[in-house]
């Protein structure tokens, strides 16, 4: 097993700030926009973006939810393992809102497909955008593309991309693991 670092902590800080800036560019005051982190790993990214929007742009009441897609997965009973669900918390009405999905790594696009189905249970959003920290290019199984990307990487299928978050953000990293 070998590892290679794709982003180090300071690079990640810059990337997160750029992503937050791009969000502000498109959503200005977030009056009608909501962030939804996808469980489990998108939530950590979403929380950091909410933090930056609050501290750097004075956007103190950006609405933020968590969406779990376990019960909507298309590989239930196919993958040979049981997946444990996570909490879903959508404390606002989704109807007519501009929703931004947030996930750490975009790979086949199947999770996003399930998330789009899951979101329908909460109403009809005006539009849905996708933000991801890492886009694994050329590996999509479905016609799904991100609107905001931290970094594009070209990775072969056997390799795994892992995003590590530390409590104080000083040891965040993105690594490539070759199993």
């Amino acid at each position: 097993m070998s590892q290679k670092q794709l982003l180090n902590s300071s690079e990640m800080t810059v990337t997160l700030q750029r992503l937050a800036c791009q969000l502000v560019e498109n959503h200005t005051t977030f009056q009608n926009s909501v962030l939804i982190g996808l469980q489990p790993r998108g939530v950590a990214l979403a929380e950091r973006l909410v933090e930056i929007l609050k501290n750097d742009y004075d956007l103190t009441d950006v609405e933020f939810g968590k969406l779990d897609i376990t019960f909507y997965r298309d590989d239930f009973r196919r993958s040979g393992k049981v997946l444990e669900a996570n909490t879903t918390e959508i404390p606002f009405v989704v109807d007519g809102k501009r929703v931004i999905f947030i996930d750490d790594v975009l790979y086949t696009g199947r999770s996003i497909n399930s998330a789009l189905t899951a979101l329908q249970s909460f109403g009809r959003p005006l539009e849905v955008e996708l933000l991801c920290l890492i886009d694994r290019r050329f590996s999509r199984h479905l016609p799904i593309q991100p609107d905001y990307v931290g970094k594009h990487v070209d990775v072969i299928n056997e390799e795994k991309v892992k995003v590590n978050w530390s409590e104080d953000n000083k040891e965040n990293s993105v690594i490539l693991i070759d199993e």
Binding site: D68, T70, F71, Y72, R73, F76, R77, E84, A85, N86, T87, T88, T117, A118, Q120, S121, F122, G123
Partner: peptide
């Protein structure tokens, strides 16, 4: 119980249905 906690949240949504067992 832990799984039921999540389903309790599901059945309190506007649309109370998930597609998990659509082939069962």
């Amino acid at each position: 119980f832990e799984t039921a906690d999540h389903f309790k949240e599901v059945i309190n949504r506007p649309i109370k249905k998930v597609p998990s067992l659509r082939d069962v």
